[in-house]
Amino acid sequence: MNYVINILIILQIYIILALSLNLKTGFTGLLSLCQAAFYGTGAYLTSILMVDIGLNFFTALFFAIIINITLNASITTWSAGRLRNLYFTLGTIALQIVFFGVIYNWQALTRGPFGIPGIPKPELAGLIFNTPLKFFILTLFFTASAILFFYWFAKTPLCKLLECTRDDEVWLTVLGKRPAYYKFVSISITVVFATIAGALYATFTSYIDPTSFTLDESILVLTIILVGGTGNIMGPVSGALIYVLLPEALRFVNMPDSIAANARMIIYALILIFIVRLKPNGLFGKFEIRG
């Protein structure tokens, strides 16, 4: 039973991550490969605030979100203003690699490759979320709020302006709006939810180290939303389902462990190539990823 609950918790963390990247990539059209940097910054900030300063989970999460927006969202918005298309994507790869270098090397703060052990479980008014089932309820709360938020947000006029940023930036300028502002809004919301996912991941595993937040992780999250489809809620959720449940399904085919990891990656990559070729807007997507 715990096995199923653990899988469901990981699944929900990926659903939050995919939904948040979907806002930036699907709605606003900023194809980016730095989701793991946002997610990792969130995880590290929450852990450091909880372990070294001793804050409560929710306070730590609140401060982590604010710091993460000032750090990452401002840098990303700045480069989104200067760079277009491929060069923006390259800029996000650069941000991701710089982030990894910093957490790997800034040992005074992040303990480098040793990682941060002993991250306490979240606590709310005397209730400690220490068993998998209780933690599952906590993640379910966050996932449900994320889904509801994005469901509501997709209908707001603000979201239409974000879509306009994606479709025709010049037209938006003609209407007297500032594209940079809408990009900042979109990236900030992405950062908020990525931070939540990171905080949940850190407290769930109680140990984090830099290898969980590499470029490969960013590629995987992007794969999730491209396979599922961008620009709506169904896409990222179904993508995350495929991504998390496929390896568990492979486990029952009795594939030896030595080749399972590699075989899994090959299957993902093949799915990605075929999806991009045959159904460029993913399984449930409304919009194609465009240049």
Binding site: L31, I259, Y268, L270
Partner: peptide
């Protein structure tokens, strides 16, 4: 006439496949 970004993503896919076949 797919966009540059689609080519980038396919390229990532090809990279992952080659690397994992070699590792296998």
């Amino acid at each position: 006439s797919g966009s540059e970004n689609i080519a980038l993503i396919s390229s990532l896919g090809v990279y992952v496949i080659i690397i994992n076949i070699i590792a296998l």
